[in-house]
Write a protein that binds this DNA or RNA. Structure first.
Lengths: 345, 345
DNA sequence: GTGAAAGCGCTAACAG
DNA sequence: CTGTTAGCGCTTTCAC
């Protein structure tokens, strides 16, 4: 292994060293610059002999193509922008992984950024991403500022809104109905015979819709109200613990099923229950959301709503790729979800 | 809310609609294209009156700057590439978050990609990222292919290797000694009076060095060997559970302290212990690594090695920014770590 | 304070 | 199969 010790030039001013360009490579190989371009983008169009010479020149010079120039000239950046509320939430990052992986097969690269839950900040990031001239853009959710919509529309590229559905997407959307997942969870709980319910939710818009779905159906069917605790938009194990503690200590909850807007929150409830010596599901039953990897391995194993995050990323990628090929495709993809019954409820 | 329904043009061929350029904006504002450029990059150089006209024209046209062209001309992309082994592991994503946040203040954007643990795949991604001409690049770890090192060196930009330290960084490195964290954990366990030890580790290179550090010191001091279970590079709760199960069932471990290469693994051990009715820390004590958010909220609360992931991202960002300003800075930053004593050991 | 000219490094026609 | 000619939309001198 080469022991490299050197200090790259300061990067304030443009790098001093003259860039190695296709011109350089071409000169060394005894051909013109265009031929180098062809050798790289469409090798079939170049004779084996000159191809060899060019490859040699590339190796010698350590040439690295300038995708900036390429994108400018071809008007195709091979870049797909993706904006998610949080980078640290596996729920999004696992979806991004499948998106990246499928797009990579088509030689597209993902430009990822974190928007938080503020549409204004999202708007700003949309602008900076659009300035990099991506070939498509993927957003989380269906709520964006009016200005963001204008920019998106004006960009003339495929726009995919993920994680939710609407009748009027900007362009395409793939997701599912959040309130329906909540209603399904309530139906499941009712079928199981639980006769009291509560809810713990993260404060973001989609999580709240899941909670409302649960509470609404529960109230419709039983006439009971559903006490709830709402936390910050990004849910933590600690919030789940606090949530159960409050439900028990201040709402006087003794037993029943608790609907959590995420598996992490549910895991927190499980943890707090263990710490308090409450039996799950006998005393407290818990339903999570997301079916993260850990859900099957908590103790007791978590009953949860499964949404296929890889599928989300995959469908988004497929839709984009289809658009690139000029196919026209249905604007909204309604992904299904299901209740995974395990031991916690 | 505007109800937009429209189908963007197919993107196979270059988008049909003529792009709105600085030229367009300038014409509308009655000035030349350069003036628009100045208005955007250095408003002071433009008279208030024309500035106003330009801003108006920008609003009317919905002009979005083309950062590709800007980067090509200025030889500065305002882009920083970052490569991490995993997007879904909070350990990396939380570091990326602090890196992004600080770089954003300097108007730099992060281009993030996932490399997995294979240096060859990393090399490939380094190439594609370098082709986008980032102004700096951040890598995970200090092991890279020889070819990757060449490209990195040739790029003439700041290169930061994160999460580890070495005497011969490619350019800069900021991290800590992994084996030292393991040794510190062993010392802690010895001080606490534990007289038997085992280890569970993820299979990646740095995790294994943490485990070795622990085992080596333990053996040096006690003469005992340390049974261990090693899993895939990305650790899961399930692996932690399996790890404890194997340690108990096949290695006949009855009691002692278990060193885990991550908090997630440790959480799994806690879970399996609960499922088996083992008391923590009386029967089985557990030491994690990372001090993730959840570590303080497991039951019992996790004793762990804290490394400040935000600090990692922050220091990387500061180093890069310093380089941009032409300052020259120490090539290696050794970040400290500490043992957080909670209830699990 | 503003403009004209000359590229940045590449791809896209068009020739031959 | 290969080369020539034009740009892509900006920033960077250098003038005025």
């Amino acid at each position: 292994m080469p022991v490299a010790r050197n200090a790259p030039p300061p990067s304030e001013a443009p790098p001093g060293q003259r860039a190695v360009t296709m011109e350089t490579v071409g000169r060394l190989a005894g051909v013109s610059q265009v031929t180098v371009s062809r050798a790289l983008n469409d090798p079939k169009k170049v004779s084996p002999e000159t191809l060899r010479k060019i490859q040699e020149a590339i190796a010698v010079t350590g040439y690295v193509p300038n995708a900036l120039a390429g994108a400018l000239a071809s008007r195709r950046s091979k870049l797909v922008a993706a904006l998610v509320p949080s980078l640290t939430n596996v729920v999004y990052s696992s979806m991004i992984k499948s998106l990246s992986d499928t797009m990579r097969d088509g030689h597209y690269q993902i430009m990822l950024s974190e928007t938080g839950t503020d549409p204004a900040q999202e708007e700003e990031l949309i602008a900076t991403h659009l300035s990099r001239r991506p070939d498509a853009i993927v957003l989380t959710g269906i709520h964006h500022t009016a200005n963001a919509r204008r920019m998106l529309l004006g960009a003339g590229i495929p726009v995919v809104e993920l994680w939710d559905i609407t009748d009027s997407p900007i362009d395409l959307c793939v997701g599912f109905s959040h309130s329906e997942t909540g209603r399904a969870a309530a139906r499941y709980a009712l079928d199981r015979g639980y006769d009291a319910a509560a809810a713990i939710s993260a404060g973001d818009e989609r999580a709240l819709r899941r909670m409302s779905g649960f509470a609404d159906l529960w109230t419709e069917r039983t006439g009971q109200s559903v006490p709830s605790e709402v936390f910050a938009p990004s849910s933590t194990l600690a919030d789940g613990r606090t949530g159960l503690a409050r439900l028990v200590d201040t709402h006087g909850l003794r037993r029943g099923v608790i609907h959590c807007s995420s598996d992490v929150l549910a895991h927190g409830v499980l943890t707090e229950a263990a710490a308090r010596g409450l039996r799950v599901p006998e005393d407290i039953a818990v339903i999570g959301f997301g079916d993260q990897d850990m859900a099957a391995h908590t103790y007791p194993a978590l009953t949860t709503v499964r949404v296929d995050r890889s599928e989300l990323g995959l469908q988004a990628a497929k839709a984009i790729l289809a658009r690139f090929e000029g196919k026209d495709i249905p604007p909204v993809t309604d992904l299904s979800f299901s209740i995974i019954a395990r031991d916690s409820a």
